[in-house]
Amino acid sequence: MVLASHRGEWVIFLDADDDVEEGFIHARWQTAIKTQADVVIFNAWRTGFGTSRFAVHTKQPYAQPLSGHEWIRHCVTHREWPHYLWLQIVRSSYIRDNELCFQTGKSHKDILWTVNLAVGDGRFYLLDVKDYSYRINAASITHRCDYYDVRAQSYIDVITEIIRLAELRSNK
Rank of each mutant, 00 (worst) to 15 (best):
V2I: 14
V2N: 07
V2M: 06
V2D: 09
A4H: 03
S5D: 15
S5H: 12
R7G: 15
V11S: 10
F13S: 05
L14N: 07
D15L: 00
D15C: 01
D15V: 04
D15P: 04
A16H: 09
A16G: 10
A16W: 04
E21D: 14
E21Y: 03
E21M: 12
E21H: 02
E22W: 01
E22V: 10
G23H: 04
F24G: 13
I25G: 08
I25C: 09
H26T: 15
W29T: 15
T31W: 05
I33D: 14
A37C: 10
V39Y: 01
V39C: 11
V39G: 06
N43V: 08
N43H: 02
W45V: 08
R46L: 15
T47Y: 00
T47W: 07
G48F: 02
G48A: 02
F49C: 05
T51I: 06
T51D: 12
S52P: 01
R53I: 02
V56R: 01
V56M: 11
H57Y: 11
H57N: 15
T58Y: 01
T58N: 09
T58E: 12
Q60H: 02
P61K: 00
A63F: 10
Q64I: 12
Q64R: 10
L66V: 05
G68V: 01
H69Q: 13
H69K: 08
E70P: 08
H74A: 01
T77M: 06
H78M: 08
R79F: 04
E80K: 00
E80Y: 00
W81F: 14
H83G: 11
L87I: 03
Q88N: 09
Q88A: 05
Q88C: 01
Y94A: 08
Y94C: 10
I95F: 03
N98R: 08
C101L: 04
Q103N: 13
T104E: 14
K106H: 09
S107F: 09
K109R: 09
D110N: 01
V115M: 11
V115E: 12
N116W: 06
A118I: 04
V119S: 02
G120S: 09
G120T: 11
D121F: 02
R123E: 15
R123V: 12
L126K: 00
D128H: 03
K130A: 15
Y132F: 14
S133W: 10
S133D: 05
S133K: 11
Y134P: 04
R135G: 07
I141A: 11
I141W: 02
R144K: 13
C145E: 14
V150A: 11
R151N: 14
S154Y: 06
Y155K: 05
D157P: 03
V158H: 03
I159C: 13
I163G: 03
L165M: 08
L165D: 11
A166G: 13
E167G: 01
N171V: 07
